[in-house]
């Protein structure tokens, strides 16, 4: 085969609909396409295209956003592994945790890193927000991302909260009991909250009931916590993190004070 036909085949392949649907750009050996390959790739370039020198400094960012993201990835991975060993039923949940400690290979470190990692993620999110607040990075034009960040904080706390029940021990059970009892007092949608009664809220149709899948912490509450913790919240958080990073790239890093 000569060079000519080689080029012809290449031409045919790269101009096909399938090829184009996957690779949006030409990957010819030019500086422009090399740059585009990097900055256009989400995984390779979370940061904005151009970053001010001061914005890279560790003493400015504390890298807390990055650490939080890393923890989120780590917890997702570990969480999936834990799901192989865990049944969200009242009869088995606690003993599955015990088995992770006593019998499953590397189970103890798997479970403990997930727990500590969860606690740590709450802390790093807080520290991250503290830094953003102190450097005034929430100000115009970054108000929207701040708002996303606040929502992400809430979901991080919810992840931690739902995960707490899954061990199905006394600590978790009473924490959820107390936590959901607070939900009773939610305005409008809690049966003990302001205007709740007027809106026809009772212990059997208010927000607490929806959270627990019943009026006491029982098998339904465990299942709900499990689904929220393992599927719903991680999906929402993943989506929001995407938006968060996209905004960071669009808005750029704020300047040093």
């Amino acid at each position: 085969m000569d060079k000519k036909s080689d080029a012809k085949i290449k031409e045919v392949v790269t101009s096909s609909q399938i090829w184009k649907s996957i690779f949006r750009r030409k990957h010819d050996d030019t500086k422009r396409s090399r740059v585009l390959a990097i900055v256009g790739n989400f995984f390779m370039h979370l940061h904005p295209i151009s970053v001010a020198r001061h914005a890279l400094a560790l003493k400015f960012t504390w890298c807390m956003g990055g650490v939080t993201f890393l923890l989120f990835l780590f917890l997702t991975l570990g969480g999936v592994l834990l799901m192989f060993y865990y049944h969200p039923t009242t009869g088995e949940a606690y003993w599955d945790i015990k088995d992770l400690h006593y019998s499953v290979p590397f189970g103890k470190i798997l479970r403990n890193t997930h727990r500590w990692g969860g606690h740590l993620m709450v802390i790093t999110v807080m520290v991250h927000m503290f830094r953003v607040f102190m450097t005034g990075s929430y100000k115009r034009p970054r108000e929207f991302n701040w708002a996303i960040g606040v929502i992400l904080l809430v979901f991080t706390l919810l992840l931690s909260f739902t995960g707490y029940l899954l061990t199905w021990d006394q600590l978790g059970m009473w924490a959820i009991t107390v936590g959901t009892n607070m939900a009773r007092a939610t305005p409008f949608i809690g049966h003990e909250g302001p205007f709740g009664e007027q809106l026809g809220m009772t212990a059997h149709n208010d927000v607490r009931f929806a959270l627990l899948g019943g009026s006491v912490v029982g098998a339904n509450a465990l299942l709900r916590a499990y689904v929220w913790h393992c599927i719903a919240i991680p999906l929402i958080v993943t989506f929001l993190i995407g938006v968060h990073f996209w905004r960071v790239r669009k808005d750029g890093f704020s300047g040093s004070l």
Partner: peptide
């Protein structure tokens, strides 16, 4: 009785 599952 005791904790039958524990081995550590």
């Amino acid at each position: 009785e005791g904790q039958g599952g524990a081995t550590t």
